[in-house]
């Protein structure tokens, strides 16, 4: 079972942490894009235009039914053939995760908007607010507050999903781990065990607090 020293020699830990930073960066950028896009999508899905709703639903269902890895392949390999674009793995990942996050959030926003009781609208109109004012000042804030728990949940799912980026060549946490294992192949033959264990623990330490926070908020809303 020896070989755990690989984790404490030289730059192993600091390199793994820099890999983790790439993982977190991709997740945060994707979430930052998903939130505004998701809100717009959710509002558009509550639209009265049948065509808008039908087109959006078709796109969202496609994004949500396909495995994220399939979407990554389509964007990463497909963009070159279809548009002659040379996207980096990281750019392709951010595009896919933003799209996926916006689809997930869009559906949540639609649900949250639908959950606001009609009396909220009626009361605002009675007070003389216009339709636009009612929506921006009364409805939207209440809907967005309900979205906090699922959004935190989305961040944690986003972090876990970034592990797929290494399959299209992005040098993130897992890929850095592989480099460390390969580099130390002869000095630490059992390195793979310890490095993957360390990566497992690192993902857990990032995602676990997010799940706990999301659960706490959810309970507070339920109470």
């Amino acid at each position: 079972m020896g070989g755990a020293e690989i984790l404490f020699q030289g730059e192993t830990i600091s390199r793994l942490l820099s890999g983790l930073m790439v993982t977190i960066r991709i997740s945060l950028v994707s979430v930052a894009i998903s939130i505004p896009v998701g809100v717009v999508v959710g509002i558009a899905m509550s639209s009265r235009h049948l065509l808008v709703r039908a087109v959006l639903r078709a796109i969202l269902e496609f994004v949500r039914v396909m495995p994220q890895l399939v979407l990554l392949y389509v964007v990463f390999f497909g963009s070159a053939t279809a548009f002659g674009l040379d996207l980096s793995g990281e750019a392709a990942s951010v595009i896919v995760f933003s799209l996926w996050g916006a689809a997930e959030l869009g559906d949540l926003v639609r649900g949250a908007l639908a959950s606001i009781p009609p009396i909220q609208y009626d009361s605002a109109y009675v007070l003389g607010l216009s339709r636009m004012q009612t929506f921006v000042h009364i409805i939207l804030p209440q809907a967005l507050a309900r979205l906090m728990p699922p959004t935190m949940n989305l961040v944690s799912r986003m972090v876990k999903t970034t592990s797929l980026c290494m399959l299209i060549g992005v040098v993130e946490l897992i890929r850095v781990g592989q480099q460390i294992i390969d580099f130390n192949r002869f000095q630490y033959p059992t390195g793979a065990l310890w490095v993957y264990l360390a990566i497992f623990v690192m993902y857990f330490l990032v995602c676990w607090p997010l799940s706990i926070a999301s659960r706490r908020l959810e309970r507070r809303w339920a109470a």
């Binding site: 070989g3 290494m166 897992i174 059992t190 065990l193 490095v195 993957y196 264990l197 990566i199 799940s211």
Partner: peptide, 21 residues
């Protein structure tokens, strides 16, 4: 908690590349 907060790919790599050691 462990299973829900870690990616499948890392779990697989541990099983496939780590355990043989």
């Amino acid at each position: 908690e462990l299973s829900r907060n870690t990616p499948l790919l890392v779990q697989l790599f541990f099983l496939y590349f780590g355990l043989p050691k």
